[in-house]
Amino acid sequence: MAIIEVNDLRKTFQTPQGRKVLAVDGVSFSVEAGECLGIIGESGSGKSTLGRLLLRLHEADSGSILLDGQDIRALVPRALRKQRRHWQIVFQEPFASLNPRLSIQQIVEEPLIVAGTYGSRTERRERVARTLEEVGLSAEFLDRRPANLSGGQQQRVGIARSLVTDPSIVVLDEPTASLDLTIRASILRMLGDLQRARGLTYLFISHDIETVRNFCSRVAVMHHGRFVEVGTARDVLEDPQQPYTQRLMAAAMPPLPFAASVGTMSTQAGNS
């Protein structure tokens, strides 16, 4: 059975001027456990809104969302909070998503404290240290504040925070968009390793076609709040059927030599 099942999801926002904007307009899809669904689309296509609707960070107007077979739109707030540890999100802006006044230790430990089912203080701290190590941060970071970390390190903290409760589903909302190329590659590689090691299901939201091509098994193309094309990454990106997808592919930069694979990139760096 699919781990994510979304049916006819709709969301309208009202602008301060009173104009109504259809952000998500009747979207349906499902994702199998352990799969990575990439969602691509230009700015304002509704892809980030979709990610937030999925975790009920925004309330949908209509439609149904089943996560792990649970109808999450039917959960009362308290029950929803209890379940949140299973469904996590990593945000685009690593620094803005970390409370500047908390230490890394506190940031990564908070999901465990809130869930209340992860044992004693010592057990929680061990788990925090273990998770930080998994994302490539040593114990020396525990007492630091977010402002004293680099962008890549901040995003690793954000990823650790989302993984510390051992979730089954992770929404990745452009997790590498604000990082530079070399860091982007290592973060993506790490996310891929973690997915395989933990059997995670990803919803990977991005506007970068090359990243999605390398990272996701299936791809959905979003435009004006609708899915215009869904399929395997190869089918959709190599042989787009819909006019919008064709235009999107044409507008994207032609594949650069270094974007083809990480191996080529390091050769290039060596030559220069």
């Binding site: 909070r81 949140r84 540890r85 998503s97 908070e110 999901p111």
Partner: peptide, 16 residues
């Protein structure tokens, strides 16, 4: 603020 949204996402109560 993004970190307030993140706090909601990890399951913090409104009070927290």
């Amino acid at each position: 603020a993004r970190y307030v949204e993140a706090a909601v996402a990890i399951g913090c109560s409104p009070l927290r």
